[in-house]
């Protein structure tokens, strides 16, 4: 009973079948094309905005106010800053406080409710917020088109962003820090304000900057709350409309005059450049410091 020792078959060099290799190559080509298409679109948009925008830039743009379909953008630049500053003034304290609550008392039911509703509020379209501002503040509140109405509408849009970035920033803070502070007898207030918050400041600041970028780029919530004005802001919080850059983009591109179109391109350049600089800063400067 000899056991037949079977010779192991000589290893055949296994090659992946040609059809599979072709399909794989085609698949990578398609996937790569998708990425190239997106990059080309991005370059296209930036190219249009930057080439035409830079071509429309000149000194009077920054020193004179809008006159009909020409003039400068000083009123709109000022308005964008006033409205965004107002929005941040309202939303940063409230948003950071909400974020602290949601992070530090994360197991309370109220925190769960706020966290969920913050996510819901992000999903409410900006035009709905704007229309709410029109109905509630401009009409019912009797404020007319005004800085206050526009800033509050923008603040509602910024609030959930800041709440969430604050929450995520505080969650990055090590629990050892909290335990150490508590073991030294510190109260909740001391632990949060004295220990956790300072450690989370760079990340929170990143969120605030991104919220600023969002508020500078928004149009829909302002159309029927801030209105539009050709003049500089008169300092009144209510009853006086104010200009802003995104309105200039929207309106002046539709005018049949070259001077108006130039204003629109210049405004688009200013808004886009500002938003990009903030995003790049947030990504490469603050984010890195926050991670360290």
């Amino acid at each position: 009973m000899a056991i037949a020792i079977q010779q192991a078959p000589a290893p055949v060099p296994r090659r992946i079948r040609l059809s599979r290799r072709i399909i794989s190559a085609a698949g990578w080509a398609i996937a790569g094309t998708c990425l190239v298409v997106l990059s080309v679109m991005m370059v296209w948009i930036l190219g249009v905005v930057f080439v035409r925008g830079v071509g429309a830039l000149n000194l009077p743009l920054f020193t004179t106010i809008t006159q009909g379909t020409g003039g400068g953008l000083l009123n709109a630049i000022e308005g964008t800053f006033v409205l965004s500053a107002g929005a941040l003034l309202l939303s940063v304290p409230l948003g950071v406080a909400s974020g602290i609550y949601v992070s530090e008392y994360r197991f309370s039911q109220w925190a769960t409710v706020i966290r969920f509703l913050a996510d819901v509020l992000v999903g409410v379209p900006s035009i709905v917020v704007g229309y709410f501002g029109y109905v509630a503040l401009v009409e019912w509140g009797g404020w007319n088109f005004s800085v206050a109405a526009g800033s509050i509408a923008l603040a509602i849009i910024c609030l959930p962003y800041i709440c969430r970035t604050t929450e995520l920033a505080l969650r990055q803070v090590s629990n050892d820090l909290r335990d150490a502070a508590y073991s030294l007898g510190a109260t909740d207030r001391r632990v949060i304000l004295g220990v956790c918050l300072p450690a989370a400041v760079p990340a929170i600041l990143t969120g605030v900057l991104l919220a600023l970028a969002v508020s500078v780029g928004e149009t829909a919530p302002l159309l029927y709350t801030a209105g539009w004005s050709n003049y500089m802001w008169d300092g009144h919080l209510t009853h006086s409309p104010i200009g802003y850059l995104t309105y200039a983009i929207w309106t002046f591109i539709n005018e049949p005059f070259a001077s108006a179109n130039a204003l629109a391109y210049a405004a688009a350049f200013l808004v886009t450049a500002f938003v990009l600089v903030i995003n790049i800063m947030a990504r490469f400067v603050l984010d890195r410091r926050a991670r360290r």
């Binding site: 948009i45 905005v49 983009i249 995003n279």
Partner: peptide
């Protein structure tokens, strides 16, 4: 692309 404002 996510950061570019809607109006742009």
């Amino acid at each position: 692309l996510m950061a570019i404002p809607s109006v742009v």
